[in-house]
Design a protein around this nucleic acid. Sequence first.
RNA 1: GGCGCUAUCGUCUAACGGUUAGGACGGAGCCCUCUCAAGGCUUAAAUACGGGUUCGAUUCCCGUUAGCGCUACCA
Length: 474
Amino acid sequence: MTRARFAPSPTGYLHIGSAHTFIFNWLYVRKHQGKLVLRIDDTDVDRNTQASLDSIYDGLNWLALGWDECYRESDRLEVHRKLADELLAKRFAYRDFTPAAADVPEDRPHGEGPWLCNPDMRALSGEESDRRAAAGEPFVIRFRVQRDPAYEVAFHDEVYGPQSKLTADIEDFALLRSNGLPTYHLASCADDIDMKITHVIRGQDHLSNTFKHILIFQGANAPLPRFAHLPLLIAPDGSKLSKRKHGPVVSVTTYRDKGFLAVAYINFLCLLGWSPKDNREQMTLYELTSAFNLDGVHRSNAVVNFSEADPIDPKALWLNSQHLRSIPVAVLAPLVRKTLEEQGLEPPADEVFFHHVIDTIRTRFSTLLDFATKGRAYFSDDYPIEKQALEKLDAPGARELLHELANRIESDPEFTEASVERDLRKLAEERGVKAGLIINSSRAALTGQPVGPSAFAVFTCIGRERVIRRLRKV
RNA sequence: GGCGCUAUCGUCUAACGGUUAGGACGGAGCCCUCUCAAGGCUUAAAUACGGGUUCGAUUCCCGUUAGCGCUACCA
């Protein structure tokens, strides 16, 4: 049974890089009929906040992919400590009584090589170590990394291929802090072992940490999971995405708030660092699941293409517009309804009519918000008349023609797209004007906009009563 | 500084030794048309650099350069 995990730490909102990792895990697990564990990585009590946790769930819930099991690492400290004790007992780890922050010089000059361990502490006898611990002296538990210069730790990464590193280049990393709380490395491995995780799929920033993790797994005599590291999402200037530097573009909820469809955003994220290799771009969740595989995952980081002038990656926007026009109207309608209500507009109660309106206008929209802005005239009588629309209404004879059109529509027993077209063209012919004049000014009068769907479709979307009223009002 | 990873159009990517280096977004242009979108068509735009290996390198190897990651009692 495939078991993967997603382990966000609640030190901020749900970052798009985290969402990227979450989605790849989800896809992998679905594809292999496995289970996905959501594990809140909250071992750093000083930096965790409830607000962050809420916003992570916020983002995850919007994505609506779900998960199978959920844990908080802070509830599992016993599991972590137990592993630290086990490693200590096996002498794979040792107590380091060096006071915090004193073990690494602040301004370690370059060229002297990295800090690897505190030899005195490493050499402490078991009795001495026990005695000082019993005396209440604070300590950190460190992994005793093999110092034999020929010793190497190796693994096969599902994305990056064969990896190896000399243990001589790995420092004696901390497992348990002096406050008794586990470090990331310990908690992560202890939980992976305990939860029988088979696939660790995470960001490439953990690629070099994997060597340490393997040491822990080996020390615990636990079977190794498969590792797959994912390329990182970065900013156009190559730096990593951070809220401080890049603002709201790094938070998933931003895209929700801008009117993105979750499936479109998921689609967009999938195309960063992965390719189905057959030129497909727009894909449904089902298509993504069946096409997904680790072979298609890239090894180089992917740039999210935004700028200050244009804070949304144009491809994300394009993908959203594609999904917006191709998902079933019945699926789209509730989302549009919610958006309209949030914007203070009143969507029509008649569901069939509502679907008709949505279907007519959605091809030129790219986000849900467009229904409330560009599409406002379809849902409210209070809509602005744009300057260029006004110019169309100011065309010679336009207003009078519209008033007369209102009369004809009032006496049209059908009021369908075809019948209105007949009414309008007949009027144009009788008056000797081009149909285009009436068509364009009608659109301007009915929607306040110079552009939009076929004018005849607009009539049926606005509705007979409102059409007559709006035409007479100009 | 040490160690690890990476390098194809502006961006996302395809080509796993032989292609006129393909697609998409964005840009430009044309067609369609009641406007605007959509759609269709056309077009500009890339293998970081230098060495090898090979009959032949985007592809394999080495070096250089650049970027990223790790080098915390952060994750």
